[in-house]
């Protein structure tokens, strides 16, 4: 019995050490909010288009049956990181043939139109979420946020913050590959 107790300090040290290792892991983001949407059906929403840009609006039904997963990006013209992310998303659409839908979150429609004119419009559909209510349905905490939705309307992945920089892009591409929207590059 006494011999077992001799190992107690070691056990305590290992437990605490493991906890610290987990806590101090630079890849762990303590601010990350777990999403309840993953593996759940996408929420119900129905958004009107932004007038005069020729891109249709976005509703829950549009997410289903696109012949593959789609990317839903929540953006706004007043969101500075969105501007940086825009180039990445445009690249995914133009080079990789991703289907990209947008939710224009709490934006003035006139501002959004000007923003898209200036930077280009990679979105196949854009819903104008003036009240922010669709954003709440998606459980977003801010913009930008990007979701990958499966062909059956199931939310597969959520990325909080701008998909900018090598780490974020490779993480997001990996998620697209997992979802089956991208082929793995043989290099």
């Amino acid at each position: 019995m006494k011999r077992i107790f001799a190992f107690l300090p070691l056990v305590v040290a290992v437990v605490f050490g493991g906890f610290f290792l987990w806590g101090l892991n630079p890849d762990r983001d303590p601010n990350a909010i777990p999403s309840v949407l993953i593996s759940q059906p996408a929420p119900q929403f129905d958004l009107d288009p932004i007038p005069d840009i020729g891109t249709p609006g976005l509703a829950r039904n549009d997410l289903v049956g696109n012949g593959g997963p789609v990317v839903v990006n929540v953006f706004a013209s007043w969101c500075v990181p969105c501007r940086a992310e825009h180039a990445v998303l445009t690249g995914l659409v133009e080079r990789d043939g991703i289907t990209l839908f947008g939710i224009n979150y709490k934006d003035k429609q006139e501002d959004a139109r000007r923003w898209l004119e200036e930077l280009g419009n990679p979105y196949a559909r854009i819903g104008s979420d003036l009240s922010g209510r669709a954003g709440i349905e998606w459980g977003i905490s801010g913009v930008p946020e990007t979701f990958i939705v499966g062909n059956d309307g199931t939310v597969l992945y959520r990325y909080v913050g701008p998909v900018v920089g090598e780490d974020a892009i490779s993480k997001f591409r990996e998620a697209l590959i997992q979802a089956g929207a991208l082929k793995r590059e043989n290099s």
């Binding site: 909010i33 777990p34 999403s35 309840v36 929420p43 709440i136 349905e137 998606w138 459980g139």
Partner: peptide, 14 residues
């Protein structure tokens, strides 16, 4: 309870 459950359904127990 219903009102809280409505928000929890979107944002989780968090």
């Amino acid at each position: 309870e219903e009102a809280v459950a409505f928000i929890v359904a979107r944002y989780g127990d968090y």
